[in-house]
Simulated scan of single mutants.
Amino acid sequence: MLFVIKVGGNVIDNPVLLQSFLQDLTAIQGPKILIHGGGKIATRIGDQLGIESKYVDGRRITDAATIDVVTMVYGGLVNKQLVAKLQALGCNAIGMTGADANVIPAVKRPVKQIDYGFVGDIDPARLQVGPLKAMLDAGLTPVFAPLTHDGQGQMLNTNADTIASSLAIALSAHYKVRLIYCFEKKGVLRDAQDDDSVINLIDRTVYAQLMEQKALSDGILPKLDNAFAAIESGVKEVLIGHAADVRSNTTATVAGTLIR
């Protein structure tokens, strides 16, 4: 089983949570890939450089100045700090962006109602996973920053969740893949007010029942839709859970929500 693990900015921004997460990641046996979000560091450094962060509906507008900042911060500072911390723990990590080894070519998002700037959209069928297979076979753990490229020399800011699902789909031709999304909840909750009401297993039948009962919060629905889309494209399993449970969520007895 290959584990494709995405960790969000809330963990990246918290040194204590991050160290614990990286220790758990190191302890996971077998091949694994980590995709990390950016956290608030790019915003802070942009402010220091006099570059204002702009958002529409929570999505960053990546203009020419901002793509330089996020490339520097995500692909440099954050990514290399993660790699160095993993090396210190005995995990032989290698830092990556989508431009490295041409693993994730993308296209600049077309301008419609909103111009998101230098934001990349991915077609999983175009991913070049040969270099990743070679790294995994050599015992390396690739660590991806949320950056891709357009093949013409331009870096592109790309959602880390999307990179994770695209890598999982592309690699599912070669491995049984469990795609793991680490976020701030323990999993998909039957009761949004009860953090311990985790639903440990969801398939299409259970999902239909939950939807009919209107048992799920609106916020989790896009994650579930993306999970089933990944499964329909070849990914064996998707897991949604808390970063603190990542180690147990690579086992048969999961703490979060396994989607099949």
Rank of each mutant, 00 (worst) to 15 (best):
M1L: 10
L2W: 11
I5W: 02
V7F: 09
V7W: 01
G9A: 03
V11M: 06
N14Y: 04
N14V: 04
P15F: 14
V16Y: 05
V16E: 15
L17P: 01
S20N: 13
S20V: 02
S20A: 13
Q23S: 14
Q23L: 14
D24F: 01
P31S: 12
P31W: 12
K32N: 07
K32G: 05
I35V: 15
K40R: 15
A42C: 00
T43Q: 08
R44P: 00
G46V: 09
D47W: 00
G50Q: 01
I51R: 01
K54D: 14
Y55F: 15
Y55K: 15
D57V: 00
R59T: 11
I61M: 02
T62K: 03
D63M: 04
D63A: 02
A65W: 09
D68S: 12
T71H: 05
M72I: 05
V73N: 07
Y74Q: 09
G75S: 11
L77Y: 15
V83D: 03
V83M: 03
L86Q: 07
Q87T: 10
A88C: 04
A88R: 07
A88Q: 09
N92K: 07
G95D: 08
D100R: 09
I104G: 06
A106W: 04
K108F: 03
I114N: 10
D115S: 04
Y116R: 08
G117M: 07
F118H: 10
F118Y: 15
A125Y: 04
A125P: 01
R126L: 14
V129N: 03
P131Q: 03
L132K: 12
L132P: 12
K133G: 08
M135T: 08
L136I: 06
D137G: 04
D137S: 14
P142M: 06
F144R: 08
F144M: 06
P146D: 10
D150M: 09
G151S: 11
N157I: 07
A164E: 11
L167V: 12
A168C: 06
I169F: 15
L171D: 01
S172A: 15
H174I: 00
H174K: 00
K176R: 00
V177R: 04
V177M: 04
Y181C: 15
F183D: 02
F183Q: 01
F183E: 01
K185C: 09
G187P: 08
V188A: 12
R190K: 04
D191W: 10
A192Y: 13
Q193D: 10
D194R: 04
I199T: 08
R204P: 00
R204N: 05
L210T: 11
L210K: 10
M211P: 00
E212Y: 12
Q213T: 11
K214A: 00
L216W: 06
S217R: 00
S217H: 07
L221K: 14
K223V: 01
A227N: 06
F228D: 04
F228Q: 09
A230M: 02
I231D: 03
E232P: 01
G234M: 02
G234L: 06
V235P: 03
K236I: 00
V238N: 10
T257I: 13
I259K: 14
I259H: 12
